[in-house]
Nucleic acid binder design. Structure first.
Lengths: 344, 344
DNA sequence: CGGTCGGATGCTCATGTGAGCAGGCGCGCA
DNA sequence: TGCGCGCCTGCTCACATGAGCATCCGACCG
């Protein structure tokens, strides 16, 4: 077969052309002279080499992004925006990068929200730290779910909201209440208290929300903080909980795992999150793929900031995961992205 | 320090620009619009990103080459040509690629040698196999050092020369003699035999030589073939031998390790190799760095075909090299390579 | 044997891109 | 404060490049 033979020869030519073009910075014309082909053919060889993946261009930088994945994610789940950072091998580094990216994104959000609702946790704390002083002017911050001032961990809950507000020269309004109350009556009582209910009311009016999610396991801050026991987590998992969003445990279906527990959970509800125009989910790492999937497939966020592994996991279709999305992978992104990207 | 801050900002801009340019195929003008800078600045950011190594362009293909290393090698050792292939993790694969590259090179040698002198060994056998049928027309081949027809290995010695000749539609002239004789007298006697001496004489007239080199250890084909014992190798190593070239063991200084042994070695001498206009060394793999160095530093080859690790080892300067390798790695290559490469 | 089709080839032309240069800006130094 | 000095900016212009098109060649089929 002559065609096979010439195809192989062409591929070799393409490799030589690519070397001369990308490594030696020669012009296509010069390459043509060297390889004894016309410069147009050189151009075609190079195009071919790029298509076939012979040439790999990679941007190696901690702040690099994965725009292709961002587009795919956004298109697949109808997000307003998606930010995907390359995943380093180191989990700690990964969390740092995601947080940094979230901070970058927050800075660039337009219009600048006058009031920003935030949850708390390890991730959000890192985001707060990554924000530059003066990242915005006069942005007030309100805490959207009950928090742990009692935690032994340095700077959780309150300090996160405060730091974000401070760095924007705004006021922070905290939610002075536990995340989960032991008795429903207590929760109702505390909720009706002006200082608590008022904050929740204020949170409902936030122009944007910034939140993360936790995994339903014993490493959760809820266990650390004493709101839940290992047994509680065990039961939640039996009910299909994959993780929590602003304190509320959800299943892969995006439904509340334990309504009774949820009723005792104080703060913004999932509906408010779903209906918000800007709700930014910051989430990264292997362990959180399941929660992340639950959140994006059920419209609980309009923006996601994550790492490329999580992004790919979200785009990979898992054939059989009961109840929920039954996604099917499309070959590749031929999405003719008509709109210009946003995020600068 | 304002400069630090703006430099960091610039770097981020460069990263964003690179992403949009290389991953999204946007024009510099478009990128300028997105990042709110002029298109000239975008051009400069991209140039900066390339310089700083933020953008990594790699050509992933088994037949790819390392032109930069080739140029450096050629310049450093005054070679006519150097062929460097990327090194895969797998040693077997590496040998295959080097052999393939050597075959490619041989095909492209101009003027086409009417008579080609070849040695034998595992490497050269692979080269012979990698040559396409009809790689040249009417190229005759002559064996340049004594060979093992007796070896248990399939297709060594004779078959290598024969295969190369056959594929070029030429005649192969073999050297019907052992590589190393036990007694000097025997060697002299056999050498003076017309059928042997004539071949050696013919070999001296070859227009080009193709050869590899062996390591001075017990895995050598010389040991396998029974020409040398493990003890012989031990003694050679004590005398500083790093390996053999067409059957002759040399030290890192490029001198004959054991003159007495060498006198009993039949075939072309090192001087003939050194003075040849085209002598192509095919060598790859970790173990052969020392021999390779001895060969190139002492002008025994005019062309080298190797892998990138070997190439880098050859370019790394070792301060004190007294026979035993005592390598010292230098930070990186800032070697200004002034001359344009040759190899087509 | 002649017709037709698909893919590759070499071209024209519009656009994209890099080199080189004048001006401006901020910094350091007196 | 005033005066260079060097770096950065935005520009012109020449060149490199990719899109689109007419043509050619070989393969396949009636």
């Amino acid at each position: 077969m002559v065609s096979t033979e010439s195809a192989a020869a062409n591929e070799l030519l393409a490799v030589r052309a690519a070397e001369l073009y990308y490594e030696e910075n020669k012009t296509q014309d010069e390459i043509g002279a060297i390889l004894r082909v016309t410069r147009w053919k050189v151009g075609r060889l190079l195009a071919q080499a790029r298509e076939r993946g012979i040439i790999r261009i990679e941007i190696v930088h901690p702040r690099a992004r994965r725009l292709a994945l961002e587009r795919e994610l956004g298109a697949r789940y109808g997000l307003k925006d998606a930010i995907v950072v390359p995943a380093p091998v180191d989990e700690v580094e990964l969390q740092a990068r995601v947080a940094e990216a979230a901070a970058d994104y927050l800075v660039s959000v337009r219009p600048v929200p006058r009031l920003l609702g935030v949850s708390w946790g390890r991730t959000l704390h890192q985001v707060a730290e990554a924000l530059p002083v003066g990242w915005a002017t006069a942005v007030n911050v309100v805490q959207i779910n009950g928090g742990v001032s009692l935690s032994k961990r340095p700077g959780t809950a309150a300090s996160t909201a405060v730091m974000i507000a401070q760095k924007a020269g705004g006021q922070a309004t905290l939610l002075p209440s536990p995340a989960i109350l032991e008795r429903l009556e207590t929760k109702k009582a505390i909720e009706s208290d002006r200082t608590v209910g008022g904050v929740v009311q204020m949170a409902r009016g936030a122009a944007a929300y910034l939140f993360s999610a936790g995994v339903a396991d014993t490493s959760s801050v809820h266990v650390d903080s004493g709101y839940l026991t290992a047994d509680d987590i065990g039961e939640l998992r039996e009910r299909g909980a994959v993780g929590d969003v602003i304190g509320r445990y959800i299943t892969a279906d995006g439904t509340i795992a334990d309504p009774e527990l949820d009723a005792r959970t104080l703060g913004l509800g999932l509906e408010e999150l779903r209906e918000a125009t800007t709700s930014i989910l910051v989430i990264g790492g292997e362990a959180k793929h399941a929660v992340a999937r639950a959140i994006v497939t059920h419209g609980l966020c309009s923006v996601i900031v994550t790492d490329e592994h999580t992004a790919r996991a979200l785009l990979d279709d898992l054939d059989g995961h009961d109840s929920g999305a039954d996604l099917r992978v499309e070959p590749a992104g031929h999405h003719a992205t008509p709109s210009e990207g946003s995020s600068s």
